[in-house]
């Protein structure tokens, strides 16, 4: 328990010291969103119809930027080696790292998506569906992203995206449907998203541990 707490505060400290990790995805997300009305059309009807999909795609793309940071810095400065050599419980390390990364990179984007009611004319009555599905969906994406980041530690960043994006396809489909379709169908999609979350958390975190290990053999 003490370990959990101190490791958690260590991670939080790192992220709060280096604000570029947090601001980067936010700027990217806003720019991406702003380009769609300019590139496609500024017709409110059309935009509000496309909004859920656009928000989801932009969140995924912004996620690509942040997955790099989950393990990379610790790998570069050697702290990851230390955790590994000192036989820390890697499961706890991985889970905490992913969760803190989610708090600092995905949570701001979720809050920003509320703005889309104005920017993309997203229907207000569906906002709660969107936020709910984003909460679960971004968590799953963080896990897939962590795996992609762990596999491609020290390699080029395009590779990590090429691994993460196809894996995230179910999240994209379920999440954007949850925010598109009427409220009678939403429980279905939310339940499935939750199921996917509970399914991927253990499997992906174990795969992550394996992926980290292979860099030390």
């Amino acid at each position: 328990m003490i370990f959990l707490k101190s490791f958690f505060s260590r991670e939080v400290l790192i992220y709060s010291k280096k604000s570029s990790n947090v601001i980067g995805p936010v700027i990217f997300f806003l720019i991406c969103i702003a380009f769609f009305p300019l590139a496609i059309s500024n017709d409110p009807n059309e935009l509000s119809r496309l909004a859920p999909g656009l928000i989801w795609i932009c969140i995924l793309l912004a996620g690509m930027l942040s997955i790099q940071t989950i393990f990379k810095e610790d790998y570069d400065d050697g702290s990851l080696d230390l955790f590994y050599v000192r036989r820390f419980s890697m499961l706890q390390v991985v889970l905490i790292k992913i969760f803190v990364n989610w708090i600092f990179t995905a949570l701001p984007l979720i809050l920003l998506s509320c703005l889309m009611v104005f920017l993309l004319y997203f229907p207000l009555e569906k906002l709660l569906n969107l936020i709910g599905s984003l909460f679960i969906g971004t968590l799953i994406i963080s896990f897939f992203g962590a795996l992609a980041g762990a596999l491609s530690l020290g390699r080029n960043s395009i590779l990590a995206s090429a691994i993460m994006l196809p894996l995230s396809l179910p999240v994209l489909i379920l999440g954007s449907s949850a925010s598109t379709y009427s409220s009678e169908n939403i429980t279905f999609f939310i339940l499935l998203l939750l199921a996917l979350l509970f399914f991927s958390v253990p499997i992906i975190s174990i795969a992550c541990i394996g992926a980290i290990r292979l860099h030390y053999e």
């Binding site: 169908n185 429980t187 279905f188 339940l191 499935l192 939750l194 199921a195 996917l196 979350l197 509970f198 399914f199 958390v201 253990p202």
Partner: peptide
């Protein structure tokens, strides 16, 4: 976790 996830899938299919 996997048990919970299976339970959730089944309750989703009830919808």
């Amino acid at each position: 976790s996997i048990l919970i996830s299976i339970f959730l899938v089944f309750s989703a299919l009830q919808e």
